[in-house]
């Protein structure tokens, strides 16, 4: 309970900090929404020309893109340091979080908020709203889907960034993995063969951030729900295990300092 309280307090502080520069915040939110909208034009052009790819049409793309964008937005907004974790480890900046009596991983991840994430989150909902699949029931499924997709994405980021405990500077590998995850999650899953699909459920779990939650938002099946729940649970557990296992190897030149 006390962890939840501190979590809410950190998020509140992040929001207040973002609101300090209101114009910048709004321009980033609107800019990101426009950015996503312009990117999606490419898919509209593609499906206007080719209609559908192995049963996958533009409506499916709206939902897939919507789920991925909203999940990405949630992670950026609430767990913004997931994108910098490797850098924090390499620079010895974990010292600050280790010196406080709070769960290190949770506190580190939530200590930063990326304002443009709000634009991604809102755009995702808009994308779903115009997909042709929108209904009250579908919205409830969409909400659950983006939460589980966000858990998968945040866990994947933690796993990849935790490699910094062993490799030191893992920036290139992290960039490669994160780019692959985002790119693959916004492509129709119908274009991949079985080997590729296996990779997209395990090594780079982009299917659990895009196609599977999108299928669940479109139509309820126990199979997709089970895939999402098991996937999110397994990746979360793996992320926590790898981070704390790596933490045992953590070394720094003592960067503990009083921050008022």
């Amino acid at each position: 309970m006390s962890n939840l309280k501190i979590l809410l307090a950190v998020w509140k502080a992040n929001l207040q900090s973002a609101m300090e520069y209101r114009v910048s915040f709004i321009s980033q939110v609107l800019g990101m929404m426009l950015n996503n909208g312009m990117y999606f034009v490419i898919w509209v052009i593609f499906f206007d020309r080719f209609k559908e790819i192995r049963g996958w049409g533009v409506g499916d793309m709206y939902v897939t893109f919507g789920v991925s964008a909203s999940a990405f937005g949630l992670v950026s907004l609430f767990f913004g340091n997931a994108f910098n974790l490797g850098d924090i480890i390499t620079r010895g900046r974990l010292d600050y979080y280790l010196s406080l009596p709070r769960p290190v991983l949770l506190h580190t991840l939530t200590s930063r908020s990326v304002a443009s994430g709000a634009g991604d989150f809102l755009y995702g909902i808009l994308s779903f709203a115009v997909s042709g699949y929108f209904s009250a029931e579908a919205l409830a499924r969409f909400t659950l889907a983006i939460l589980l997709a966000a858990i998968v994405f945040a866990s994947f980021l933690v796993i990849v960034q935790s490699l910094a405990f062993w490799m030191g500077n893992a920036t290139n590998l992290v960039t490669l993995a994160v780019n692959a995850m985002i790119t693959f999650s916004i492509y129709p899953i119908s274009i991949f063969d079985n080997t590729a699909k296996l990779i997209l459920f395990t090594l780079v779990p982009a299917a659990l951030m895009g196609a599977v939650p999108a299928s669940f938002a479109i139509a309820f099946t126990w199979q997709t729900l089970a895939q999402l729940l098991i996937g999110a649970g397994a990746f979360l557990a793996l992320a926590i295990f790898i981070f704390y296992f790596g933490l045992r190897r953590y070394e720094s030149g003592s960067g503990i300092q009083v921050e008022i």
């Binding site: 520069y21 114009v23 910048s24 980033q28 950015n35 034009v41 443009s116």
Partner: peptide
């Protein structure tokens, strides 16, 4: 303006399209 990132994103996407 303080932050130009929104303009850079929009340019990138215009170049994409």
């Amino acid at each position: 303006v303080e932050d130009i990132s929104a303009f850079l994103w929009i340019f990138q996407k215009a170049a994409f399209v």
